[in-house]
Design a protein around this nucleic acid. Structure first.
Lengths: 337, 337
DNA sequence: ACGGCTGTTGACAACGCTGTCATCCAGCAT
DNA sequence: ATGCTGGATGACAGCGTTGTCAACAGCCGT
């Protein structure tokens, strides 16, 4: 039953050679109209679809790109994948997805697997591990690093200004009078988190406010962990009057804890939009992470590379695209101590 | 630069024939240890990775499955894809994703494209269109229909009890004393929405409450549309005292509108979890849509089929898996008129 | 009538891989 | 020494496609 039609079947049916079938299927002009019609009928009757593996094997090319991110469950990355898929599908590409779960070893496995598929390009949200394997595996396949920097050089990067956006948000909090600002961080050593933390420190430094390391929590990957961290911070003698959450899951946990402990007068700013955050009381102030914009820029960069490669053109020098972020002030970030 | 090593390169390097390389790579026992070592060194030195297209072409099989859903931006489907990817990657499969945007034509295009990739299996959240093309295109590839039923028979289906869960939720509202319950629906004619609406009607019928068609809104695909629909319902002389939202985006819109118009005393139940919904005031009562469970069941069913196919076994009869849902009562659904 | 063109078609190889079958050699029994 | 067995290895075809090159017919001009 699994017998799909091949060029041979079509050729036999139409009474021509396989080469003529190939010509018709590929829209070559040098076929007589009558012949073309016979072939096209045969194609339709047999529901012939070219075998992409044979195509890829022969040409060494694929219309497939890989997208490797932390997790599809993360709304940020889900949005990235959604938009990249949309743009690339429109250009005739199919998208292979893989999740790293932030595990460097797993990232390597997934990328190697994709490389075996001879993908035409790769979008990677890198883990914080050694990426020297990439050069060996990719053999010049266009690579776009998204959302983060890593130890890969000479490749396109699309990211946001983690440092600047965080710095601005924390400066806002300080301007509102806060002096004890908690940092709800992420246990991983990802550069994004590092940059956000640097922004947090820089804001303090520039404003002449001392940082209390006791207010920095690096164990809040998930919502419940952030809630616990927040709850424990609330028990301090001089508890923080404001919370900066490194990512939306953390913010959700912090908000949860503040609500549970009836401490919603304390300020909160989230890095990344939280669904329904505008309906909370107070409404949540967020740095809009703009996954659509990042994805759009990523898809654009990748498509440019793919077209360059297709045309056999010399690749233009790699570029770093920085998507600017804005603070959406909705209330929770403007509370005073 | 794009020259990846082939069996020939490895064979030459190791001073053996390509067949021996093949044997070593595939872990065949009948190779002398010394030869194997030489080949393995060559493999390592040349960073040889088998060409999956050649493999697929030769064997007619692939370790790739397709997942086609409405949109990756939808948290429900993102979660489905995330879990399916996780389970299938663990079994050595790679996942091709594609979004239909609820467009039947687009679904067909995407599925045909995936079929051209000779995927080993397909997970499909079908649009509300004609699916007769599937048989022609799939040629017996295992197909798992997820979340919805459609005009395909004789295939595995994994879905939830849309009718029963909705009926129960609406019965709850009626038990709380509500007689005017709005239905915030989805413009599409998807069977899920149909079933939910049937549940809504059935609850009314069984409780002897008359349905007012003026309270049914079918134009609320997105959050802002649901917010508008809700706002307009609030202007009615006898405005609904409760709202049943067919999907989380709708619920978010309804909640938004109720908050804006300071009408949060009106009851709301959402079909599908809303992030942070438990922090709203009142906290949102939801029917938990359980994407993880659905995805788990889907992956299990598909893997069973894939293993059956791999072993050349006779396929067992197709099964329908029904994931039971529960109502999470958190406040907004228990408000009285 | 002949060479040369053009327009249409086909034979064949090759892409990278593995299954089939053949080959070769050592070791052993006769 | 002879034949036989079995272990290790290799030659080759073919999966479905398209690029290369060749073939062939019909038509033109001379």
């Amino acid at each position: 039953m699994t017998g799909r039609a091949t060029v041979y079947d079509v050729a036999e049916r139409a009474g021509v050679s396989i080469k003529t079938v190939s010509r018709v299927v590929n829209g070559s002009e040098e076929v007589k109209a009558a012949t073309r019609d016979r072939v096209l009928s045969a194609v339709r009757e047999l529901k012939y679809v070219p075998n992409s593996h044979a195509l890829s094997l022969r040409s060494g090319k694929t219309r497939t790109v890989g997208v490797v991110v932390d997790s599809l469950s993360d709304p940020f990355f889900a949005a990235i994948v959604a938009f990249v898929e949309q743009k690339l599908a429109a250009a005739g590409y199919t998208v292979l997805v893989a999740a790293t779960n932030r595990n460097g070893e797993r990232e390597r496995e997934q990328v190697v697997a994709l490389a075996g598929h001879h993908i035409a390009g790769l979008v990677l949200a890198p883990t914080n591990s050694d990426h020297s394997y990439l050069a060996d595996v990719l053999h010049g396949i266009p690579l776009v690093i998204v959302d983060r920097t890593c130890d890969v050089t000479g490749t396109d990067v699309v990211k946001v200004d983690d440092f600047g956006a965080t710095r601005q948000a924390v400066l806002d909090l300080i301007a509102s009078g806060h002096r004890r600002i908690a940092f709800i961080g992420d246990s991983s050593a990802l550069p994004t988190n590092h940059d956000r933390h640097e922004g947090y420190l820089s804001a303090h430094r520039d404003a002449g406010v001392e940082v209390d390391p006791a207010l920095e929590r690096w164990d809040s990957n998930e919502t419940d962990e952030a809630a616990e961290a927040t709850a424990s911070l609330l028990t301090l003698d001089d508890a923080p009057t404001a919370f900066f959450a490194c990512h939306p899951r953390g913010a959700a946990g912090t908000v949860q804890a503040l609500h549970r402990h009836r401490q919603t007068h304390r300020a909160v700013i989230s890095f990344g939009e939280v669904l329904l955050g505008d309906l909370l009381q107070p409404a949540l102030t967020v740095i809009d992470h703009l996954p659509e914009r990042i994805a759009e820029a990523t898809a654009d960069v990748l498509l440019r590379r793919l077209i360059e490669a297709e045309d056999g053109r010399e690749p233009s020098p790699p570029a770093e695209t920085l998507v600017p972020l804005t603070l959406i002030r909705r209330g929770s970030g403007e509370l005073t101590p």
